[in-house]
Design a protein around this nucleic acid. Structure first.
Lengths: 207, 207, 207, 207
DNA sequence: TATGAATGAGCGTTCATTCAT
DNA sequence: TATGAATGAACGCTCATTCAT
């Protein structure tokens, strides 16, 4: 895992001319898949579409990837590893934990900006239920946003852009609940409390 | 949207006996679907499975829901609305914005605990790519967790349980990036900055 | 095994009207498949062809059989069991071993005549290599046929129709060799000797 | 037919060095194919597998054989002819028809023992339906075997090993029925009768 | 002569949805 | 209203064969 190598018999790993051609086709398939996954979602993207977009035959796809899932995995893993490396590099040399966090955060967003397609796959709502989930999501974000704005007006909260904070809070809570569903050994009270204190401190206006 | 009503011809909306039977079947389908979606994911759940689990014929499903998507939408919307109502109720009467946040957060987690199945659908990682995405996720969480622990040891961060904080941060960043992908008019620098300041203040140890 | 029952969830095993319809479709699929297998061979017969010939949709096939292999198995087993039963019945009551053999032999051929399609599947040369294997086969049969004819002329062999004897001998030897390939613990000399003595006695002219 | 020559443009038929190399590759392909066909069946053997096993490129295959069928045909024909020649040789010089039969039979089995792979292709049950057909086959062989044993105990039949006789009989009947399916002009009664008399005489105990 | 990457028609199978009863 | 058998479009995948190098 974590390499950008094929999970398919490499036959004659990069043997000059042919090897180059092979590598090029593989790269082309990855590029096409990445774009299609990002815009149509995994299920909405057909193997034949990827092949067509990469300008190769359907069967060629299977010469480079075991199946659709395998290509997806390659895409995700390869990107994750690259990002992790960049984040590690950014943090190295810094000693202040806060500075490390800042570096990592910056790297994360910069990397995302440079790899929008893959991020859309990794973090984007799957295109499939988009409308529905977006609506629901928007509902909660709107509520939080309004609350936050009021808190800002009351000089209780930091004057951050309310939408951003609302998204941040929704993301934090969603993730915590999702994780808790699989780790119910952690008391929900502790999670609730930690979450709230992170939010409280995070949003409190400087005195 | 947002009602728990069928998008199907109501035929004879709640006419006594029959109406009750009809409502019961519908509820049974929702219950069965909710459970199956939660454990097998949307794509892994077949309409026939839902019908079987609800102990009705396949065709009966379509007497109550236009199609699989519609049932899913009903499920999600109905739960969202209930949760929103509970959160609103919890906040009403409170004036301190921080207290409002605390109330909303508590309600959110309590509601989640009481409606695990639906939350697994809404916030759970889709069962489909579970292993893969989990691996990737775990990678980043682990990194953050370690950084955080070091910061706690250095008396820089609050002594929260590191895993919880790591999940919270990952959730916050994921959501922000996901949202930004669709709202690129907001400068990424502001998002980066806000995110970092939320994290910094949120995690800073009390003096 | 050995039943003519579906290996598919029977849902509501023969519940009146619906059950009858279901059974009819299943029978129709079997009938169609039998005919197609016999004339085009297993690989030459597509599931869609079977469905079409049975005048049902492709998907209907899978409502009755797990897959193409399963239908084939059903076909073969069901016929085998029916034949075996008839042969048993024919032998019952007879005490002379020779008479039993005669009865079994007669039944076998009569049954074959009445179930040509299935026998073509079970014993026919797979259509696929037909021409080739036929040519080779014919070569050996021709040789034996000629030898036999000469033996008949020389009043050494019984005046049976030479082709029949030649086919019988080729069949016997083929089967013995095929079986021996999987049971090499039996000395090939014993097989050779037994085979030859069966042929010798079987063909010797009455004195 | 019947030659071991390629049906492919001979290019420069056996011109010394090159010709030898060419012949060697061809032989290697045949050898590899023979082994693979025997163990995996025709359909289970891919052209690419053959090439790989022969340690040549896929395309090379087509430099030596028109296609998969052609190689198979070559394999079968070449072996058939060699066997036929050996059988002819064995019979030559013998005048007693019975002796000729014995010689041919011996040669057949000896040849089979020396060419197991090809015989597995020619006479072996196709690997594909092996389990199923074996089960069915075993059923009938078992019945005959038991009948035969009883006849031996009753001193009616020759004391041959029952399994061998059972296989012989099944082979004889299978072949006859298979042949009859394509030659229905021969009355089935004559076939039945001849078969039975061959079996009867063949198995009768010496007085 | 040899290679192996590329091809693409064609197959088995799935499953949301319909409809006759 | 309920049923479940029937439907068929659509998909993932295979593999014999071709062809540029």
């Amino acid at each position: 895992m974590g390499s950008n190598k094929t999970n398919i018999v490499p036959l004659a790993e990069a043997s000059g001319r042919q090897g180059r051609r092979r590598a090029k086709t593989r790269a082309e398939l990855l590029r096409a898949a990445q774009q299609l996954f990002a815009s149509r979602g995994f299920h909405g993207t057909k193997v034949a579409d990827i092949a067509t977009a990469a300008d190769v035959g359907t069967g060629t796809f299977y010469l480079h990837f075991e199946n659709k899932d395998a290509l997806f995995a390659d895409l995700v893993k390869e990107t994750s590893f690259r990002m992790r490396e960049e984040m590690d590099a950014a943090k190295s040399g810094l000693v202040d934990p806060h500075e490390q966090n800042r570096a990592a955060t910056s790297t994360f967003f910069r990397f995302a900006a440079e790899n929008r397609d893959v991020f859309r796959i990794l973090f984007g709502h799957s295109v499939e239920f988009d409308t529905l989930l977006h609506e629901v999501h928007a509902l909660f974000v709107a509520d939080i946003e309004q609350s936050y704005s009021e808190g800002v007006d009351a000089k209780v909260f930091q004057p951050f852009r309310a939408t951003i904070v609302a998204q941040a809070i929704v993301g934090m809570l969603s993730q915590l609940v999702s994780w808790w569903l699989d780790h119910q050994e952690i008391p929900i009270e502790e999670i609730t409390d930690t979450a709230h204190r992170l939010i409280r401190q995070g949003t409190t206006r400087d005195v």
